[in-house]
Amino acid sequence: PHHTISPVALVGGGANPMPGEISLAHNGVLFLDEFPEFSRSVLEVMRQPLEDRTISISRARYSIEYPAGFMLVASMNPCPCGYYNHPTRQCLCQPGAVDRYLNRISGPLLDRIDIQVEILPVDFDEMQSGRPGESSETIRQRVVSARKVQEERFSDCKGVHCNAQMTSRLLSTHVRPTPEAMKILRDTMIRLNMSARAYDRILKVSRTIADLAGSPDILPEHMREAVSYRALDRSGWGKY
Rank of each mutant, 00 (worst) to 15 (best):
S23A: 14
A97I: 00
R230I: 09
M194N: 09
P108F: 04
L192D: 10
Y83H: 12
P177S: 11
T188Y: 07
V117F: 06
M18W: 09
A15W: 02
S228C: 03
V205P: 05
N193Q: 15
Q128S: 09
H2N: 09
M127D: 00
L212I: 05
R207F: 06
A74L: 03
M189V: 12
T178C: 09
N163P: 09
A198R: 11
R169L: 11
D187I: 13
R53V: 03
L10H: 14
D233L: 03
G130R: 14
P7W: 04
D125V: 02
P177E: 05
P7I: 11
T138L: 09
A68W: 05
N103A: 15
R169T: 09
M194G: 08
L30I: 08
M127V: 13
R224N: 04
V160A: 00
S168A: 06
N163H: 11
E225M: 13
M223L: 03
S228G: 01
H2D: 10
R100G: 03
S172I: 00
G214K: 15
D156C: 08
A60L: 00
A213Q: 14
Q150S: 11
C162T: 10
L72R: 06
M194R: 04
L232N: 01
D125M: 12
S155M: 01
G236Y: 13
M223F: 04
S75R: 07
Y229V: 00
S228N: 05
A213T: 01
M46A: 04
A196D: 02
F154E: 01
R112V: 05
I139N: 03
M182R: 14
V11W: 00
M189T: 10
F154Y: 15
V160M: 02
I190M: 14
F70G: 09
D211P: 06
A210W: 12
L43M: 04
R201L: 06
E180P: 01
Q116R: 08
P87F: 15
Y101S: 01
M127P: 01
V122A: 12
C79E: 01
L10V: 15
V98W: 02
S23T: 15
T4Q: 15
I139Q: 07
L212F: 13
F31V: 07
V8T: 15
T138H: 12
R176V: 08
Y84V: 01
Y84I: 01
T167C: 07
S135A: 12
G238A: 14
S75I: 09
L50C: 07
L192R: 09
V149K: 10
L109M: 07
R191Q: 14
S145R: 15
R104N: 06
A74F: 06
E134S: 12
I57V: 15
Y240N: 07
I64L: 05
R224Y: 02
L219N: 03
L24M: 13
R61Q: 04
F35S: 03
S195F: 06
N27V: 03
V205M: 11
P132Q: 11
P177L: 10
L102F: 07
G28H: 13
L109R: 06
S168M: 07
E221Q: 13
S235R: 12
E44G: 02
R207H: 06
E34A: 05
L192H: 14
